[in-house]
Design a protein around this nucleic acid. Sequence first.
DNA 1: TCCGGGATTGTCT
DNA 2: GACAATCCCGGAC
Length: 190
Amino acid sequence: MVLGSIFYREDAAEVAEDLIGKLMIRETSSGITSGYIVETEAYYGEDDPASRAAQNGRTQLTEPMWSEPGNVFVYMVHGHWMLNVITGREEEPNAVLFRALKPVQGTDLMKERREKDGLTDLCSGPGKLTQAMEIDDSFNGEEFSERDKLYIEKNDLGEIDVERSGRIGVTEDLQEPLRFFIEGNEFVSR
DNA sequence: TCCGGGATTGTCT
DNA sequence: GACAATCCCGGAC
């Protein structure tokens, strides 16, 4: 049921697309929260002007990008935590950013953490998602696995229509569209 | 110590 | 859809 590290040893764009419709689960002492992944973006290494690996180089902040595929990479932008999973091969700083979820389990807990009532306001953006799921940089260097209370199940949405577009919020994007989302889904960020 | 920038969010039109 | 508020981080002074 739980996706193993083999799943992430593919090209970032392929992993980003395959992750759409999978179920992300987070367990804390307060309870379980989960949601279907409805929006992702692929980021490449030094050749990608929008990637932290290219912008900052290899620093303490970006070091987790060079770790094993399947590992978690979290960093802060505009005061919000961004959740990524490392993809491809080791020593190649490629990653997939989780941008939005369709809330499934623990929606009351999410509402509490987000201080919002609307279902579409809980996980419809990369910063909202980490707040609703209570994820921060303490996950850096960990892997997605049941043991770490953050994992992804194969269990998917079924028939879905995955659309792609340019990435959001980046000043200099690559030619290939690297954002993946479910067409018409009300829980995507925009 | 100061200052600018960003893989954002929230609010208003 | 557009714009301002926000806030850590890293580089410069």
